[in-house]
């Protein structure tokens, strides 16, 4: 950036003044980021204090790292952390290949109408809300009226109350996620596939390569950089399972398997008779820091392996 300034041979201050119209365009976005993304970081100090609404964030008393100690020592720590990582990894490992596979398969289809129909239908679940998705899951798995139990009964087996069993929670979460997201997630791979140089395929055709060989030796390596980037991004989000879907699928009976860091923070901070902002902030901060470290490690590993990286 400095170089371009020197090339323009104008002082920086003058350049800034001359660009005032661009800064005006930037102003709403910058205000938003400052107010809703950066300003909250000031509140992170609550994690090291005993927050009392009466004294405010600044005036509350320092408490050292006692909230972190309490979390690490608590009975819930390993269960919540374990559930979070288990659910994320399960989801990542099982769901990740599906969009890639679908994109490679769709890329082989020449019949335009068929290709568009498959795309149209598989995108649809992405536009359904999480609430409706979970509502559908609950309907389908209903112990008495659900479609799945209807099938099980038809074949002469006893019905199962799926949502009440902790051992099924993660599988229901992952499978419903595959149904909802595979089609839409495959768009980015389709876009990457369309960017592969067609002369590669023509040359391979001259050599008499089969379709499967061309997929394996041309298509897959061609989209590998995109695959790696998406993998890194997903791996960096392992602790971010999110509030929405887990919270909706949670019930007292499956809590043992469904309590994750995000829902735990929500309960302690906002949804219990005795809310504790400082404790909840500390747990949230632990998650943010651990998540950032994880992202850096994964990116570093990808760099070592000579793969595409974020930076």
């Amino acid at each position: 950036m400095i170089k371009t300034h020197m090339k323009n041979s104008r002082p920086l201050r003058k350049q800034v003044l001359q660009s005032w119209q661009l800064y005006i365009l930037l102003l709403p976005a910058a205000t938003y980021v400052a107010l809703f993304k950066i300003y909250p970081m000031y509140g992170l100090q609550m994690a090291f204090k005993d927050y009392r609404a009466l004294n405010g964030i600044w005036g509350s008393e320092w408490a050292g790292i006692k909230h972190f100690e309490r979390f690490f020592a608590s009975y819930d720590f390993w269960r919540v952390l374990g559930n979070t990582i288990e659910l994320s990894l399960y989801d990542l490992i099982v769901s990740f290949p599906f969009p890639i596979l679908l994109a490679l398969m769709l890329n082989q289809v020449r019949a335009k109408l068929f290709k568009q129909s498959v795309q149209l239908v598989t995108y649809a679940p992405h536009f359904i809300s999480v609430v409706v998705l979970v509502g559908m899951v609950v309907q389908f798995l209903d112990p008495r009226l659900g479609l799945i139990n209807g099938l099980i009964e038809f074949f002469g087996y006893p019905q199962i109350n799926w949502m009440a069993k902790p051992e099924y929670f993660k599988t229901i979460y992952v499978l419903s996620g595959i149904w909802q997201n595979t089609g839409f997630a495959c768009i980015i791979y389709l876009a990457a596939l369309s960017g592969i140089n067609p002369t590669l395929h023509e040359a391979a055709l001259m050599d008499g390569s089969s379709r499967i060989r061309r997929i394996w030796h041309i298509d897959l390596p061609g989209i590998m950089p995109v695959i790696m980037i998406i993998l890194i991004l997903n791996a960096g989000h392992i602790l971010n399972v999110g509030y929405e879907k887990v919270l909706l699928m949670q019930n007292p009976l499956n809590l043992e398997a469904s309590e994750v860091i995000d829902t735990y923070v929500y309960k302690i901070g906002l949804n219990s008779p005795l809310t504790n902002y400082s404790y909840a902030t500390a747990i949230g901060l632990f998650k943010s820091v651990a998540g950032l470290i994880m992202l850096i490690i994964v990116n570093y590993a990808a760099k070592k392996a000579k793969q595409a990286t974020l930076w």
Binding site: V265, G269, L285
Partner: peptide, 12 residues
């Protein structure tokens, strides 16, 4: 990449 989290955003 780094977020303040639920409670600080709630308080803002």
């Amino acid at each position: 990449l780094f977020q303040a989290g639920l409670i600080p955003e709630f308080l803002v």
